[in-house]
């Protein structure tokens, strides 16, 4: 049971404020979706959560412990796992070897230099299970570069699942997928064990509204609104901007932007 908390998180790239005073609570076992237009700072927020970036100010707490100063590796070790928006795989390995690698690292098998990898049956079994979970069981011996883009996206999620996560961060898991692949990923996300805290960045509103307990709308690095799917659907500002309601000029976007 893990609760992830951010307190007034801020991050700027030069003069571009990409994360602005984001204070959010991700309760254990709940499903969250983060939505927002391109460049809203969604991926940057994940980079802050996973430790790829250090916040300029603010804190991140996992189960009450301040983890702001932990690096990526340490956060992955305490259960914050992520998938990437751009496929970020072991390109020369097979699907099975990719997943096995992640499992071996998580299970502290990776430092072993006196026994061949083939001898670690438990790790291999685990990798087979994860391949099945993401729907890659038939492609286990395919090299990453021979995989379709959609299958690479599935493997991307598999590597995150292999990390024994408590908090799972998925960055646009369905982007670039065919409708069938999207449906399968949708199914996979819904079938994730309930004790897992899941945060998904997703553009597909059908998936988001159906899957999420809570939706966070990011806009220019700020939390615009958050609430249940019903609340978000009924929120005037979200309706105007993201659910394609009529009569809203694109210009209103920049008009509301806080001046630097």
């Amino acid at each position: 049971m893990s609760t992830l908390l951010t307190q007034t998180l801020c991050k700027s790239f030069g003069s571009l404020a990409v994360t602005q005073e984001v204070t959010l609570t991700f309760e254990s076992g709940k499903r969250y979706a983060i939505i927002g237009p391109n460049g809203a700072g969604k991926t940057t927020f994940f980079n802050l959560l996973a430790g790829n970036l250090k916040p300029d100010t603010g804190h991140i707490l996992l189960d009450g412990r301040d983890i702001t100063s932990l690096d990526v590796t340490s956060r992955a070790r305490i259960g914050i796992a992520r998938s990437f928006q751009r496929n970020n795989l072991f390109a020369e390995m097979t699907v099975h070897d990719n997943i096995t690698m992640a499992c071996a690292i998580q299970d502290n098998v990776a430092p072993v230099f006196w026994r061949p990898m083939s001898g670690f049956a438990a790790v291999h079994d685990k990798a087979v299970g994860i391949a099945r979970q993401v729907g890659l069981e038939d492609d286990r011996h395919t090299a990453v570069r021979h995989l379709s883009y959609g299958s690479q996206r599935q493997l991307e999620v598999a590597l995150a699942l292999a990390c024994k996560p408590k908090v799972l961060l998925l960055d646009e898991p369905t982007s670039g997928m065919s409708p069938q692949e999207t449906a399968r990923m949708d199914h996979l996300i819904k079938a994730l064990p309930r004790e897992l805290t899941v945060i998904v960045i997703e553009h597909d509103m059908d998936i988001v509204l159906e899957f999420a307990d809570q939706i966070v709308v990011l806009d220019y690095g700020r939390v615009l609104v958050q609430g249940t799917p019903a609340e978000i659907k009924n929120s005037a500002i979200v309706r105007q901007r993201y659910l394609g309601e009529e009569g809203v000029a694109v210009g209103s976007h920049s008009a509301q932007r806080p001046s630097p």
């Binding site: 790829n52 690096d71 992955a76 795989l89 390109a91 071996a104 990776a110 072993v112 590597l159």
Partner: peptide, 19 residues
């Protein structure tokens, strides 16, 4: 060995090994 495979993984994608 797992150690050697990890070296390969690091060569191919050190960032993902950290992740």
């Amino acid at each position: 060995t797992p150690f050697g495979r990890t070296l390969d993984a690091i060569r191919q994608n050190a960032n993902r090994v950290s992740a």
